[in-house]
Structure formats: structure tokens, C-alpha cells
Design a protein around this nucleic acid. Structure first.
Length: 549
RNA sequence: GCAUCCGUAGCUCAACUGGAUAGAGCGUUGGCCUCCGAAGCCAAAGGUUUCGGGUUCGAAUCCCGACGGGUGUACCA
């Protein structure tokens, strides 16, 4: 519809000899302003030297609107042109919901664009903590959104099982192991203090007794057991949230296949890297950084930047056209370096989308939940899931825009009442399911969309609340696209809440089950369409839609 | 200090990326079940969008400056 109007308006502008401008349509906030609005007249006004309302008038006079589609076209306010759809158009359009069913909202807008989404990427040094939840859910929902808009998505997890952190893990487990054996053995100062380390140590005692008291300096057995334990734990948590990565990419492969050395060499050749003070430096200042960065320490070990750069190059080489990275705000410092490095290697940074989400704080009603990073009692993501459930976790972590701090109220998430936004949405779905169950006794089969399309007299949908609901439902594909395009999944939760609200209002105003069979059929169909949209939206969010609650 | 994100109703947050009268939830106050699910609906109250400048037809949104908060600022990741 927008396309059609767009073409018409473009033609009119050139006919009136107005300069070409970008024509855009918005959805007005206020109902009385119609369903679509454009500001072209106001944009044109200055260059044309007329007042905007006059410009609008001249355009509208030329406009050939189909009165089966539009109920009205009006000039309003400072010079907006407002279009209002006819009920017939809305009702006819709504048939697409039944025709598409579970596919309603999907598109091929990005026509199979090969896309890599990397997230979580926590090293196997411990279980995921509750703060990780935001990232876990964001990545999941963003991947889903991209898929719904036609991207060919590879879900990826990048990890490092070498280096300092893993050494530290091994030392921590070893220390706990010795302590379990009754030795007075010191715990490393920077060690991982969580209880899970003790669990792992106990497991080793159980399996190996005291035979590992004298072990190699690398503590390789402890490292390997620790890694396996942690990874299993992480994967278990992810699978509870239905997060499944396609690729687990080990940083080590970048070394073993020579990719790291290759990058250094190439940087040096391009004079983007140099030796100094026994280390290798990247000329970050060439890209506007305040100082150059070390990429290989004087010890010979690369810093995290180097493998990160090499890794992103590999993503390009693997053929990805869009690379999405999801980081917490605490990792923000690494991003410019990686982007600069990627650019230096000749790739477009515009094809790398870095999503940085702000931190999460937890609150239990009035009480602030403190969670210090290396302390013993970090709240794990598993515990959070056990406490509030998968649905609340999925919904809460994605309901705020990524740019703002997220306050997670555990008490609210746990509460099974109307205060909880997850339940509001699920209730709408269950309520519809209840009505449809009731209607089955009257012979309404809600599973056969094609028959329903045949049997329903769509012209009977004419109540205001009914039309409002259909309009809202028809926005769904656009919402999905815009969420995917802007990487802002929270807008989907906002939208779904509006759908539920609009449905409840319709339900409250008009009886669905009634004596007029045709009217009942029409209204049941409206309910069913609302159910489809809510279900599809929840699918993207990973929130369940119960038939009963 | 520098980088970066943010500052909107008592609280938690929206605002379709520059549009018309800034909206929701919670909380507060009042109303609605002889009838399809009241985990619902309706109504009221609540605002100088932190402050000060600027850009233009038009600013919560863009620019500059203050103030306040988060996160970084390593030859840790």
C-alpha cells in the first residue's frame, strides 16, 4: 500500500514541478489522524516557497484515491496528509493472517543473506551467572528475528580454552582438591571462589583419590576436567533456554592454522604494526585511537585483540555478509580495536554490527540484590531460571532497549498475577484458546484455516474495536522487520502487549459466542487471527503460549 | 582526565529513529462479573522530558555546554 501511494505521490510531485524529495509514511500516534500520514508537504514547503497546507492541498487535488481502499484523505495540522483506510480494506487485508498462519510475519526481505551471530562466548571457567541472561536472550531473539526476515543465520559461540583464565581455573580446582584432601594448601589470590570449584574438586577426589597430589605444573588434568565440567554446565543452561549454537569456535584453531601469524605479518607489511619494547604494537592511532595497542606481549603471547581481529577476518572469509556481535557494556573497550583491525585488513566495518547492551541489576521487590563478580555467591543463571521460569527470563531480559540499564525484578518475574507482563500476554492467548475450545462444541474447527477462510463472512467485522484489533494485527510483519533492522527486539514485547490489550478491549465490548451463527463465525475468526499473531510473536521471543493457565 | 551509554509521571520503562495533544505497566483513587476465562475492562490523578544555549516549519529525539549516574580506560578477556 505504501508503495502504491509512494509511486502516485512521486508522479504528482514531478507533475507539479516540485523538487524530488524523500517521501515517507508514518503511522500516526493519534487515532484521529488516520492510519498513514506523510509530511511531504511540510518538507517541500520551504523550497517551494508556499505554506505547507497549500502544498498539501495541491497534492491532494491531484491524488486519485480508490475509495474502496481509503475512507478519507485529509490535510491536517501544519500540513500533514492523513490517509484513513476503509474497513473493507482492513478486513480484506486481514485474510493474509489466516493464509499465512504460523508463517505470518515472516518475510524474505534479506533474501538469504549469510549472517553470523556470535554471542555468549563465555570462556569455560564457570557457570553462566544471572547477568549473562540478558546477552543469552538477546542473541537468541535477535537470531530469530533475523531468520524471520530472511537471513541465513549461523549461531556461533567463540571460546578460549588456553591462556590465563584457564590456568587460573586449573589452579583454583587444584587448590580446592588439596584442601579436600585435608592439606593446608593456599587458594590463589585471584582464583575462582565459586562453590562449583569445590564440587569439581570433590568429583576429582571421588574418581582419583589422592593420586593427583603430585601433578604436572600445568595441572593439565584439572584444567581438562574443569573445562569439560564448565562447558557442560553452560550448555545445559543454554539448552534450558532453548539456545542452540551451530558452531563452537575455538580460539585455538586460529593459532594452529597460522591465522594469527598471518595477521601480524600483514600488519607489518602495511606498516600497521611495529616492534617496540619487546612487544608488537598495532598502530591504532592511525585510526583515531589515543594510543597504539599491544597485540603481542613481550612474553610472546598475543593479547586478546589479535585473535579477535583474526577471528573476524575468518568470519568474512567464511562468506558471511553480515556479522553480528553481541557484547555487554563491560567489553566495550575491545570493539574499536577489532573494527580498526578488520578495516585495516580490507573489510567493510559496516558489515559488522556490534550490539552493546548495558548492564543488568537485580532487585527483589524493594531489596537490591548484590552480585559481586568474583565473590563466592554469584547468582547463577540456572538459579534464576529455577526461580522465575524460562518464560519470565526470556521476556524480562528482552523487554528493555539494549541501550538502557535493565532492572530485573525477581519478585515481579516470579509473581503469577496481572502485575507480571508475561502473564498479561499469555493470558490473552489462553483466553482466546478457551473461547475457541468453547466454540468447538458449536462446530467451529480452529485448526482448518482454509475452511475458515471459506466459511467466514468478513464483511461482518465492522465494530470499531474489531477493526482496531485487525489493524494492530496487520502491523506484525512490519514490527518484525523493523525489530530485525534496528536490532531492537524490545519493540516486539511492546507491540505484543498492545496486541493483547487491543484484544481484551474487543473481547470486553463484543460477545463472540452468540446466537447469530454468522456473526459468531466472524468474531471467532478475529480471535483466531489474534491468537496466531500472539503465538508467532511468542515464538520469536521464546516464550510459551499456554492453551490453559 | 578520556571514551562510551544513559537522565522522560512516585517507581520501572516506551515513544515507529525529527512530527500533531509525550504514552504504558506498577503504585494511588473510583467504577464494571445472573452472560464466551475478572490473570480482564473502563475512568481519574500524576510531566517545564535534569538544567542552559543552538539548529528549523517542528526537538524527549540532532549539535554545543553544564550537572548527575552506569560501564570501560592493561603487555587480563
Amino acid at each position: 500500500m505504501k508503495d502504491l501511494l509512494h509511486r502516485q505521490l512521486t508522479a504528482i510531485l514531478s507533475e507539479l514541478k516540485y523538487p524530488p524529495v524523500e517521501i515517507s509514511f508514518d503511522r500516526p500516534k493519534v487515532e484521529s489522524h488516520g492510519d498513514l500520514t506523510t509530511n511531504v508537504a511540510m518538507v517541500l514547503a520551504k523550497s517551494v516557497g508556499k505554506n505547507p497546507r497549500q502544498v498539501a492541498q495541491s497534492i491532494v487535488e491531484k491524488l486519485q484515491v480508490d475509495n474502496r481502499t481509503f475512507a478519507s484523505v485529509e490535510i491536517a495540522g501544519p500540513g500533514f496528509i492523513n490517509f484513513k483506510f476503509s474497513n473493507a480494506y482492513v478486513v480484506e487485508s486481514a485474510k493474509i493472517i489466516l493464509r499465512s498462519g504460523e508463517l505470518f510475519g515472516k518475510s524474505n526481505a534479506s533474501s538469504g543473506k549469510k549472517t553470523n551471530v556470535e554471542w555468549v562466548s563465555a570462556n569455560p571457567t564457570g557457570p553462566l551467572h544471572s547477568g549473562h541472561g540478558r546477552q543469552v536472550i538477546l542473541g537468541k531473539v535477535i537470531s530469530n528475528l533475523l531468520e524471520w526476515t530472511g537471513h541465513n543465520v549461523t549461531r556461533e559461540y567463540y571460546f578460549n580454552n588456553a591462556g590465563n583464565q584457564m590456568r587460573n581455573l586449573a589452579e583454583s580446582i587444584y587448590a580446592r582438591y588439596r584442601q579436600e584432601l585435608g592439606d593446608d594448601y593456599p587458594f590463589p589470590e585471584e582464583g575462582y571462589k565459586g562453590d562449583y570449584i569445590i564440587d569439581i574438586a570433590k568429583q576429582i577426589v571421588k574418581e582419583k583419590g589422592d593420586s593427583l597430589r603430585e601433578t604436572d605444573a600445568e595441572r593439565s588434568y584439572f584444567k581438562q576436567v574443569g573445562e569439560t565440567w564448565c562447558f557442560n554446565k553452560i550448555k545445559e543452561t543454554l539448552s534450558k533456554l532453548d539456545v542452540r549454537h551451530d558452531v563452537f569456535y575455538n580460539e585455538d584453531t586460529l593459532y594452529s592454522t597460522g591465522k594469527i601469524a598471518e595477521v601480524i605479518e600483514e600488519f607489518k607489511k602495511k606498516d600497521l604494526a611495529y616492534d617496540s619494547e619487546g612487544a608488537v604494537w598495532f598502530r591504532a592511532t592511525k585510526f583515531g585511537a589515543d594510543k597504539d595497542r599491544v597485540i603481542v606481549k613481550s612474553s610472546g603471547e598475543p593479547t586478546y585483540r589479535l585473535p579477535d581481529i583474526a577471528y573476524h577476518r575468518e568470519k568474512f572469509r567464511r562468506g558471511f555478509e553480515l556479522i553480528v556481535d553481541i557484547f555487554g557494556a563491560d567489553h566495550i573497550a575491545t570493539i574499536p580495536d577489532v573494527l580498526n583491525g578488520v578495516q585495516a585488513l580490507g573489510y567493510e566495518t559496516k558489515d559488522v554490527k556490534v550490539i552493546i547492551h548495558q548492564m543488568v541489576s537485580f532487585v527483589n521487590g524493594e531489596e537490591v540484590v548484590k552480585m559481586s563478580k568474583r565473590s563466592a555467591n554469584v547468582h547463577t543463571l540456572d538459579e534464576l531460571i529455577d526461580e522465575v521460569g524460562v518464560d519470565a527470563v526470556s521476556y524480562f531480559f528482552v523487554m528493555r532497549s539494549v541501550g538502557t540499564h535493565l532492572e530485573f525484578d525477581i519478585a515481579l518475574a516470579k509473581e503469577q498475577s496481572e502485575k507480571n507482563p508475561v502473564y498479561y500476554l499469555q493470558y490473552a492467548h489462553a483466553r482466546i484458546a478457551g473461547i475457541l475450545r468453547f466454540a468447538e462444541q458449536e462446530g467451529f474447527n480452529s485448526a482448518e484455516y482454509a475452511k475458515i477462510l471459506e466459511a467466514t463472512n468478513f464483511a461482518l467485522m465492522k465494530e470499531k474495536e474489531e477493526i482496531d484489533l485487525l489493524k494492530k494485527l496487520l502491523e506484525f510483519p512490519e514490527v518484525v522487520q523493523s525489530c530485525a533492522l534496528t536490532f531492537e527486539p524490545h519493540r516486539l514485547t511492546t507491540y505484543l502487549r498492545e496486541v493483547a490489550e487491543t484484544f481484551h478491549r474487543f473481547y470486553h465490548e463484543h460477545r463472540v459466542i452468540n446466537d447469530d451463527k454468522n456473526l459468531m463465525q466472524a468474531r471467532l475468526t478475529v480471535c483466531l487471527m489474534a491468537k496466531i499473531v500472539i503465538a508467532n510473536g511468542c515464538k520469536i521471543l521464546g516464550v510459551s503460549c499456554p492453551e490453559k493457565m
